[in-house]
C-alpha cells in the first residue's frame, strides 16, 4: 500500500515577542499519522481551541511551513517548490472552511469560484469545459449549475452555500479534502445532510477527508479513525468508535464526559 499523506513527527513552533521577551510557542508537537492511498477514509482531528488542530491543517494544505519533521503527499514535499508543482499539489488537496459566508466574496457570483477553480486546477481549457466540470461537481453534492448560476452568496442558505463550497473543492478532482469545522456554522436541520454527504463522497468518489472538529458526536457518527489533540500533542489515536466508546487518556475521558448528550437523564444532569 502506498501512502497518500504521511506525517512524520511534524512540529510547528512560533516565536513571539521582541529581543528581550522572546519565547517560543509549540503549536504542534511531533504529530505522526498516515493516510493510505487506496483506503479512503474520514480522519477526524479532535481538540479544543488552541490545541493546534487548525495549525496542523494549514501545514497539510501547504499554507504554513513545517518547522520540524516531514510532511509528504504521495512522497513529495507538501506545497511544492515551483509554481507548477504548487498548482499540481493544490489540485490534489482542497480545503473547506468553517463559515461559508466568509469563504466566499459577497461581491462575486458563486459560479465564478467554481469556473475559476475548474480553469486553474481542473484542466479545463475553455468556459464550456469549465462549466461541465462545475456541473459534475455540483451534482455530486445535490445541486446543479443552473440552480446557482448568477447567484450571490447572500441569496443562499448556510447549508446550500456549504454544499457549494464542497462542490468547489471537488472540481479539481482532489485526493484529499481538509474540512475545518465544516458543520459548526450550519443550521441543525441541515447539519446531518452535510455530514452524510462526506460519507457519500468517501464511498462513491474514494476521497479521503480530514475532518477537524470539536464535536465528538458527529466524529463518532462519521469518522473512521481519529486523533485527539491537546496543547499540540496527540494524546490518543485509533479507530473512532473504539476510542470514543472507551477513551484511555485522562484528557480524552474528560472531553468525552463533557459532551452533553441529547438525552434527559433527570433534571440535574450537570452539577
Amino acid at each position: 500500500m502506498t501512502a497518500l499523506l504521511t506525517l512524520n513527527n511534524v512540529s510547528k513552533s512560533f516565536t513571539r515577542g521582541g529581543i528581550l521577551s522572546r519565547h517560543r510557542i509549540e503549536a504542534v508537537k511531533n504529530v505522526s499519522f498516515t493516510i493510505e492511498n487506496n483506503r479512503p477514509e474520514i480522519f477526524a482531528i479532535i481538540g479544543e481551541s488552541g490545541s493546534g488542530k487548525t495549525t496542523l491543517a494549514r501545514m497539510i494544505l501547504g499554507m504554513q511551513e513545517v518547522s520540524g519533521g516531514s510532511l509528504t503527499l504521495e512522497g513529495n514535499r507538501v506545497g511544492g517548490r515551483t509554481r507548477k508543482e504548487r498548482l499540481a499539489f493544490m489540485a490534489k488537496v482542497q480545503p473547506i472552511f468553517q463559515n461559508p459566508f466568509e469563504a466566499f466574496n459577497p461581491l462575486k457570483k458563486i459560479d465564478y469560484y467554481l469556473l475559476l477553480t475548474a480553469m486553474r486546477f481542473g484542466g479545463a481549457v475553455d468556459i464550456a469545459e469549465a462549466e461541465a466540470a462545475a456541473d459534475v461537481a455540483l451534482r455530486q453534492v445535490g445541486l446543479s449549475l443552473s440552480e446557482i448560476r448568477g447567484r450571490f452568496p447572500h441569496e443562499m442558505s448556510g447549508g446550500q452555500l456549504q454544499r457549494v463550497a464542497i462542490a468547489r473543492a471537488l472540481v479539481s478532482k482532489p485526493r484529499l479534502i481538509i474540512a475545518d469545522e465544516p458543520v459548526s456554522m450550519v443550521d441543525a436541520s441541515l447539519r446531518m445532510a452535510i455530514v452524510n454527504l462526506f460519507g457519500e463522497l468517501r464511498d462513491k468518489l474514494g476521497l479521503s477527508i480530514i475532518y477537524i472538529t470539536h464535536d465528538l458526536a458527529t466524529a463518532y457518527y462519521i469518522a473512521d479513525r481519529l486523533i485527539i489533540m491537546q496543547k499540540g500533542e496527540v494524546v490518543e489515536a485509533g479507530a473512532a468508535r473504539e476510542v470514543l466508546s472507551d477513551p484511555q487518556h485522562p484528557y480524552s475521558r474528560q472531553l468525552r464526559d463533557a459532551v452533553l448528550s441529547p438525552q434527559v437523564t433527570g433534571s440535574l444532569s450537570i452539577q
Binding site: S189, R191, V195, T218, P262, Q263
Partner: peptide, 14 residues
C-alpha cells in the same frame, strides 16, 4: 437527527 456517542443509527438531514 442528533448523533449520539455509542449509537450508530443512520441520521438524516431535513
Amino acid at each position: 437527527s442528533l448523533p449520539r456517542i455509542g449509537d450508530t443509527v443512520q441520521r438524516t438531514g431535513l
